[in-house]
Design a protein around this nucleic acid. Structure first.
Length: 961
RNA sequence: GGGCGGUUAGCUCAGCGGUAGAGCGCCUCGUUUACACCGAGGAUGUCGGGGGUUCGAAACCCUCACCGCCCACCA
């Protein structure tokens, strides 16, 4: 006997055990070896992370697809795994060191530090996969992969994949080392990619202009103290105007012909200026006559040229722009164009963004915003500051560190993304890979079409170390292993003169390499690691065994679908497309389904700092995994964000209980499954009707999942389960199940059991635990069922719909509903049984009423049904299609109220008729609208007219009484 | 600056050319043996504003307003 309510906690754990024991989710189950394959690779969560609502949404949707396809008989691989998440994980461990007051990573050294990270991974690495299991994720857990492979195993296949991709791309000229400006994160002291930069808007408040006077007319000096205070609090948000004196002119701030004014939001960078640019030809370019002259760069003693360059916009700032090639992306390009006239870019910062030895001694070692203050003060002291204005501008910040990034000139490794993007673009424009919803393809195109070289080296320790070794002369040897690098180096140095040792290299793990001339040179390995997304980009094929050519790769690649959030289309989807197309010569997936973000009730992004994070595990504990999953599916309408709602989850918990009780009802009424039950062969009207409804629902759910319309699929199965199966079918079945007609009872029991099974199946992708439990516990001809629901076939029916049954049950439902409605409106006590008179019923209606008399009596709380030619006096009257039903309630109800009610009904019908008439009397509607629409309107009008006639008759009776 | 999305019942959202919907909340009633995590009934909308296309617009087009997101060289 089933308990009264569904208790998820214990059941979920046990059901999960059963799935595992049966290896239900294992890809390549022998009985499916001839079935079509269906594969999804999981977006690998951070290995040391824990489940958040975004994961819950993402994995629920994937699991719905996988379970659905598995039930449709396909050989499903849902490939699980985790990501090493370079920066994020390294940050966590560094913070741990700090909190425990242990030596920082630099003091610890690389090896010891990495040991700590691996230890942390070992400690917390299982958390998220266990949480995914709690959610019910039907991954093939035996195939779990980690982007970094096994610890200390350079031969690990996941590591080999990364190394091979790097080496191959290098040998193909698609990876190269370059000295150019990168986004430097001074917090991590690492380069980051363009995508990891977030533009944050800043607005200042400080305002000062040379020549300002106070009330007494005295000039107001720049308040250094106030400025300094402000700069500490908010370093950005101001535009500074500086005068650069013309070389040879006697500088006078009051004589504009003696200087050029430049504007900047980053004053400290002036120490690295190598030019001033003005527009060479534009009519509004007020400085163009100065091209070729030089200005004295204050504070430095250097002079720099004024160059003509289109980049200088006469409409912006002062029309003259200072050029700092080492610290600004545009300036770098300008500097490059005028390299013949300029000194080399002057790098003024070190890795911490403190001023380095390239600036005058007095500024060295200053942190960049202190430097900003000092520079402004010193410039002002010499009257070079023209004005300071508050401005609103966007300042690039590191998305993880949260500090302003500094464009910095360094050597980094780059992937020629422009080249790789070609195939990735073609795959989507040709339709081989499809975005759902389609509009996300536009973002994908826009980004890939304008893609910049991808900086893949990171100055971190946690990650795949770049497989490049350097000789003392800086010669690079890119190789899949140290041995191979040594061999390359030996070959190289055997044929070229012994390199002179330049500097001492970067000193790590130096390897001796024989030159073949009896001496040795040291090799050292590049200490940098690869961007985490570099290894994630290989995920669809690395997890399947690449670079080996494995059976899994042959069977499951390209994968069927990818399910992910829009926030990582660029980071991940586009890069998988690039790498997949390049290395596999084949797209990594056919469909990319993009879902939204999970937000809090107010629509805010969930974040730890806001404290509005909801823990899905808590929700699972409180409401069950099924309720959480169902609410995710029901709220996941295509392309829109999901606003989390506890009420909603609670509602679906109630839904689970409802289902549970429907099963309980079936059990109590001995609705036992019959082995060879055929829904096409049932005789009873009610049973024929529910069979048709099952078919319709199965088709709707199937179509919706196929179209990735998860909310529609969830809605269809919800409505059917609650609104059709529970509210009507089971209620209508009660009189039969309690009745004397043994044959009808037997058929209804069998049909109810069958229909419940279909509900369990249709619901299983959404609510796997409760459905699997009920599948097992509702007995089959007295014996326990041993099959698993998750592997049982998906409902596929055709031809069960029966129009006559639909019509008849529809009539019963409407009659019952109307009677209930009138009773309620007329304040008939809920417990009172009243008689029902069917007025002027023909043979067909009589037969119907006889067939379903028990049902009508029970559900509408009627004591007797009789047939009369006219409604008895003092009746409430109801029009149901062609039938007029009367409730003789003289003395019980207020006939005045009944009159009002009828008038209201008549008004409603009249309003509808007016609307339809307006259409039908419109010539062009009749002429131009599709005939079936016109016909439909005519029918509707006729129906309303018939109803009105009956209502009028009813009204007459009431008024006569 | 460019682009995308949103604005529908008190709240959260579906619907996206042919009769305005759901869940929650609200009101009334209910010990009817599956379920009060329930049942029955009910109220509630000039579908953001303004134009247009169409026989017909919540839906398509234009425009405005507001909200959100993404991209963009911090003069």
């Amino acid at each position: 006997m089933l308990e009264k309510t569904y208790q998820p906690a214990a059941i979920e754990a046990r059901i999960h055990e059963e799935w595992v024991k049966a290896e239900a989710f294992k890809a390549g189950r022998p009985e499916r070896k001839d079935a079509a394959a269906y594969a999804i690779v999981i977006p690998p969560p951070n290995v040391t992370g824990s489940l958040h609502m975004g994961h819950a949404l993402n994995n629920t949707l994937q699991d719905i697809l996988c379970r659905f396809e598995r039930m449709r008989g396909r050989d499903v691989l849902w490939q699980p795994g985790t990501d090493h998440a370079g920066i994020a994980t390294q940050m966590v461990v560094e913070r741990q060191l700090m909190e425990r007051q242990e030596p920082d990573r630099r003091k610890l050294g690389r090896d010891k530090f990495l040991e700590r990270v691996w230890a942390w991974k070992a400690e917390s690495g299982g958390t998220i996969t266990n949480q995914l299991k709690r959610l019910g994720a039907s991954c093939d857990w035996s195939r779990e992969r980690f982007t970094m492979g096994e610890r200390g195993a350079p031969d690990d296949q996941m590591v080999k994949a990364v190394t091979k991709v790097f080496v191959d791309l290098y040998n193909q000229g698609l990876i190269y080392k370059d000295k150019r400006l990168v986004n430097w994160d001074p917090q991590f002291q690492s380069a980051i990619s363009d995508l990891e930069v977030e533009a944050i808007e800043k607005t200042g408040t400080f305002k000062w202009t040379r020549g300002d006077t106070d009330k007494e007319g005295n000039p107001v000096a720049l308040d250094h103290k106030r400025l300094a205070k402000l700069l500490v609090k908010e370093p950005a948000g101001h535009m500074y105007y500086f005068n650069y004196p013309l070389e040879g002119a006697a500088y006078d701030p009051d004589k504009p012909e003696t200087f050029v004014t430049v504007a900047t939001t980053r004053p400290e960078t002036m120490l690295g200026d190598t030019a001033v640019a003005v527009h060479p030809t534009h009519e509004k370019s007020r400085y163009k006559h100065l091209i070729g002259k030089r200005v004295v760069l204050p504070l430095t003693g250097r002079t720099i040229p004024i160059v003509g360059d289109d980049y200088a916009d006469p409409e912006k700032g002062t029309g003259a722009v200072k050029i700092t090639p080492a610290h600004d992306f545009n300036d770098f390009e300008v500097g490059r164009r005028h390299a013949d006239k300029l000194v080399a870019p002057i790098n003024i910062f070190d890795a911490f963004a403190k001023l380095n030895e390239n600036v005058p001694e007095t500024y060295r070692g200053l942190e960049r915003f202190q430097a900003r203050m000092r520079v402004v003060e010193d410039l002002d002291a010499a009257s070079y500051v023209a004005k300071i204005e508050p401005t609103t501008h966007t300042v690039p910040h590191g998305d993880r560190s949260g500090v302003p990034i500094e464009p910095w000139l360094t050597d980094q490794w780059y992937v020629n993304a422009g080249e790789l993007a070609k195939a990735a673009l073609a795959a989507v424009s040709s339709g081989k890979t499809r975005f759902v919803p389609e509009r996300f393809a536009a973002d994908y195109f826009r980004w890939l079409e304008n893609i910049q070289p991808w900086c893949v080296s990171r100055q971190l320790w946690w990650g795949h170390q770049i497989p490049a070794w350097y000789g003392p002369d800086g010669q690079v040897f890119v190789a899949t292993s140290q041995d191979e690098a040594q061999a390359l180096a030996e070959k190289h140095y055997a044929s070229s003169p012994s390199p002179r040792v330049r500097g001492e290299g970067r000193g790590e793990g130096q390897l001796p390499v024989s030159t073949g001339r009896g001496d040795e040179v040291p090799l050292w390995r590049d200490p940098d690691v690869l961007d985490t997304w570099f290894s994630s980009a290989l995920w669809p094929f690395s997890t399947l065994g690449w670079p080996e050519s494995t059976p899994e790769l042959a069977r499951y690649y390209p994968t069927s679908a990818l399910v992910t959030g829009f926030d990582i289309i660029f980071f991940w989807v586009a890069r998988m497309m690039m790498m997949g197309c390049h290395f596999m010569q084949e797209i990594p997936f056919h469909d990319v389904y993009i879902h939204g973000l999970v937000r809090d009730e107010k629509g805010q992004k969930m974040s730890k700092s806001k404290g509005n994070v909801v823990d899905p595990l808590k929700l699972i504990e409180e409401f069950g995994a099924d309720a959480l999953r169902f609410s995710m599916a029901a709220m996941a309408s295509q392309g829109s964000d999901v606003k989390f709602s506890v009420k909603r989850i609670e509602g679906y918990r109630n839904f689970a209980t409802k289902l549970w009780n429907a099963a309980r009802f079936a059990e109590m009424n001995e609705c036992v499954r019959q082995k060879d039950f055929d829904p096409a062969k049932v005789k009873g009207t009610l049973n024929r009707w529910i069979a048709g409804e099952v078919e319709r629902t199965a088709q709707a759910v199937t179509a919706a999942i196929e179209a990735y319309k998860f909310n529609e699929a969830a809605g269809a199965v919800y409505d059917f389960t609650w609104g059709t199966f529970c509210d009507w079918y089971l209620e209508l079945a009660k009189p039969i199940l309690n009745g004397e007609d043994e044959a009808g009872k037997a058929e209804t029991r069998a049909t109810a059991a069958w229909a419940l099974d279909q509900v369990l199946k249709l619901l299983h992708p959404f609510m796997p635990f409760i459905t699997e439990e009920l599948w097992e516990r509702v007995v089959e001809v007295g014996e326990k069922r041993t099959s698993l629901l998750c592997l049982s076939p998906w409902p596929r029916y055709a031809g069960l719909a029966d129009a006559a049954a639909d019509e008849e049950i529809g009539w019963v439902v409407r009659l019952v509903s109307e009677v209930r409605s009138v009773r309620s409106e007329m304040n008939v006590p809920a417990g009172a049984k009243v008689p029902l008179v069917l007025v002027g019923a023909g043979r067909a209606v009589r037969a119907r009423a006889d067939r379903h008399g028990d049902i009508i009596r029970r559900l509408a709380r009627i004591d007797a049904i009789t047939f009369e030619a006219a409604a008895p006096k003092g009746s409430a009257q109801i029009v149901v299609g062609e039938t007029t039903a009367a409730l003789p309630l003289a003395g019980v109800i207020d006939m005045g109220a009944e009159r009002t009610r009828l008038l209201r009904e008549i008004d409603k019908a009249a309003a509808e008729i007016r609307k339809i008439d307006a259409k039908l009397s419109n010539q062009s509607f009749v002429a131009k609208a599709p005939p079936e629409v016109v016909e439909e309107n005519r029918e509707r009008k006729a129906d309303f007219e018939a109803v009105t006639a009956k209502l009028q008759a009813a009204l007459k009776r009431v008024e006569a009484a």
